[in-house]
Design a protein around this nucleic acid. Structure first.
Lengths: 217, 217
DNA sequence: TTCATAATTTAGATAAGTCTAAAATTTTTA
DNA sequence: TAAAAATTTTAGACTTATCTAAATTATGAA
């Protein structure tokens, strides 16, 4: 069994190591809003438990058992987010903090039954893939809208930035998951993009927004 | 905001003070499986926060704000138990420990939406009343089967002892909530009771079981 | 390649919650 | 009602997770 703090460290390390290098102490400190010295303390503890590979000053990576725990937490987080949106009718910008608490409910059987209850969803409300009960999932093959060329189109399938303010902005612009968009104009000056959505409405979004809105082709 | 430990103390004090006297340090220690000295420490902290009335050596009672928190925790516990049984198909003897974790999920809005999602259930799977979002509920007016006289009948509506072993025993005997039972014999020697259930099957239960099985008339 | 800077670790401290052992208080009982 | 027993509190210590400040190690610019 892991403590709540340990689980949060493992989850952070997992997310940060997507760019598969070793993760640095400072990166973890930033992600967890804590100090580097606190991180070092915890890294020693996780290394003692064989959940991470750690050499002083060299950063860390997850061991297979650390990875298993991290994926388990992420599975719980995403399934609870799905539950909150699909069953309790929360908006996609409201569920993160609640799921952050719920992901630490320990029972595996509970989460497997929740998974079944919701008919084994594949993606959370932000388009992130949900690991199955064995921890398997396909890493999302999504690209930012900003990589689309003129007159090309795609289906909105995820968001890179999941802050409530960005999600609320997208909601207001009707740029939500499942919507089909076509690039009708790319402004050379600032790389902002004009998108056409299904009702032929045109929406002008910034380069930054286009970088954070993900599509499947 | 209260910590997890504080919430557990408040909940215990609430349950123990049903026999409405002041609750003693030792009672709390026994309920929480901890030491009297630890309890004293926490009582000081809760008193500082004005959640309990505490005078050294005199035991404690909840203040209105302490009571409000306690009832909130109990509401969450019972709603999650109901969810686990009704939506995820757990058995009534499996849900206590899970709900013990889930009752600490902080969001009020979450629990109110869960309540609505399940259509405002009045009782948890063990027959305990579920407080509404204002903390109101009628205290259950149930009596033990052992108080029934010969040839009288009632509907099983709750259990006093909620240990898994007792719940499993009742399940096996088909003595579950909602079943109508009639007392067909009372053995004078040991005060054990013979019950007749709907299919005319007769079931012989001990005095102790009869004391812990509750009926509405 | 050496020195300045950035990153990381160590040392020592703090807060929450718990413990044991001893002291204080209350309750029981003779 | 005074001594014995039980209960409760205090004192001091431990663990987890955190912090600040100082020391150490790595990095990168000249």
């Amino acid at each position: 069994m892991s403590t709540l703090a340990e689980e949060n460290y493992l989850k952070s390390i997992y997310h940060l190591s997507m760019g598969d290098e070793n993760v640095s102490t400072n990166q973890i400190a930033a992600a967890l809003n804590t100090k580097a010295s606190s991180v070092t303390d915890m890294l020693k503890k996780l290394a003692d438990k064989a959940l991470i590979n750690y050499t002083r000053y060299q950063g860390v990576s997850l061991t297979p058992s650390g990875q298993k725990i991290a994926v388990g937490i992420i599975r719980k987080h995403r399934l609870w987010e799905y539950f909150l949106v699909e069953k309790l009718n929360f908006k996609w910008d409201q569920v993160h903090d609640m799921a952050e608490e719920m992901e630490h409910i320990s029972s595996e059987e509970l989460i497997d039954r929740l998974d079944k209850f919701m008919d084994y969803p594949q993606h959370d409300p932000h388009g992130e893939p949900i690991p199955d009960c064995n921890g398997n999932f396909k890493s999302s093959e999504l690209k930012p809208v900003s990589t689309l060329e003129l007159n090309n189109s795609g289906v909105i399938s995820g968001v890179r930035d999941q802050t409530p303010s960005f999600l609320q902005y997208l909601e207001k612009q009707e740029l939500t998951i499942g919507k089909k968009v076509k690039v009708t104009e790319i402004i050379a000056f600032d790389h902002s993009v004009v998108l056409q959505i299904e009702n032929n409405k045109e929406i002008h979004i910034s380069r930054e927004a286009a970088n954070n809105l993900l599509i499947a082709l």
